[in-house]
Design a protein around this nucleic acid. Structure first.
Lengths: 222, 222
DNA sequence: GTAGTTAGTGTTCATATTACACTTAGTATA
DNA sequence: TATACTAAGTGTAATATGAACACTAACTAC
């Protein structure tokens, strides 16, 4: 790079991802096992160095594709962590992103090739490398806040779903029980849901109407 | 730095500040005139390169002290901008912060020495260097959102103030007119305000009670 | 055909938000 | 010293919002 700038000192930049999915009644975070020092063999967030030929967002999408094998999912910049001691070897700042992926998109993805990958409950994380525990905590906080005032939860749902599944999603993320009637009233009042006309016939009980989102955009509510 | 890391490529990191103050019935942003290329003589946000010996937050505070001559003001990380083309000379990503400073703290500060400095209305900015216009727009959006659900506006107020001044501050930031009675009811209901017992006697009218904040911390409301 | 399971539906009550107009306490000046 | 001027300060009624709450419907399994 051009080093004409005065005051320039070398700092490395990485991009780390907090990839959320909901499965097994829990909010799960994607972790990868580090192969190299520092923190070899320790679980960590998927990430990588920013290349000089790609934007931050491009880097985040690249990591997401490499590690999770997915594209076209919800990604948002979270925060930039730059404490001096966060990497014991060198000065590295990391731009953290978070991503939301419906579980169904993951089981069909080619990420099975990656062996040193796990999904850990966001509330029961193993020891993580660097300051990644702090990054996850921040991401959970952001996700909960946004679930409260936007329809961001959409990004975790499959294409069609029962209202009870949508309610369960909210309950898992917010870690709270919701009233069925009030929930349905509120959701339908947004005008963002559409009946598909199809019913799901799973189980020994009354079939449920399947819904989908009219648009996939994330919007502020109220 | 240690370059053992695989995949590392050189990227420079700067910190830029969107410093807000309210004066003259307008939300103003601090601008400095660039001395050097690129964008020499163009107005820009105050900023500087991240030094390898300081954290991101330290860098933001350093810039704030150098350019605005203030310490102990509200500072919050805004967003990190990293498009490829944002700096025509080299690959530079910038971690943007925004700061809130009561106007009264500025007039008494030694920043008068800095000559190439101006305060521009956030809605009537001159042409800015780099992608700084976009950064300001993002900061305004964040400030407005936070004014709606937190007491962040406190950070723009002097130590003592009339309720009508506080109302005016909200009106300027939100660009909206508020009802006097409802505003006072709501503010007093938060329990965060305290009468000082002193009245301000400015002008040919009934004197107003002066209030102060019980704590300076920024809190979420409701 | 009976038991089991989830889907689906309205109303009431409490709380929060909005709209709205007059009196009070001071200064300036005729 | 009375009158005009200005901003401070105050309450209530109407409306909208959010919370609590229980039964019937539709299907499968046995």
């Amino acid at each position: 790079m051009n080093t004409n700038y005065p005051g320039y000192e070398q700092v490395a930049v990485t991009v780390d991802l907090v990839v959320f999915t909901v499965n097994d009644d829990a909010l799960n975070v994607m972790l990868v096992k580090r192969a190299e020092e520092p923190f070899a063999d320790r679980w960590s967030l998927p990430g990588g160095f920013l290349r000089s030929s790609e934007s931050l967002e491009d880097a985040a999408l690249r990591v997401l594709k490499e590690k999770a094998g997915v594209e076209d999912v919800y990604v948002e910049q979270l925060y930039t962590f730059g404490d001096l001691a966060r990497d014991p070897r060198a000065r590295v700042i990391t731009v953290a992103y978070f991503a939301l992926i419906p579980w169904k998109e993951l089981v069909s993805s080619p990420s099975d090739k990656v062996t040193d990958l796990m999904w850990a409950s966001a509330t029961r994380l193993p020891k993580l490398a660097f300051d990644h525990r702090e990054i996850v905590a921040y991401a959970v906080q952001r996700l909960r806040a946004k679930a409260g005032y936007s329809n961001i939860v959409y990004a975790l749902m499959p294409r069609q779903f029962r209202l009870s599944e949508l309610q369960r999603m909210y309950e898992i993320i917010m870690n709270d029980k919701l009233d069925k009637r009030n929930f349905r009233k509120r959701m339908l009042a947004t005008g963002l849901l559409q009946e598909t006309g199809r019913k799901d016939v799973a189980g020994a009980h009354r079939p449920a109407m399947l819904y989908k989102f009219k648009k996939m955009e994330i919007a502020f509510l109220d």
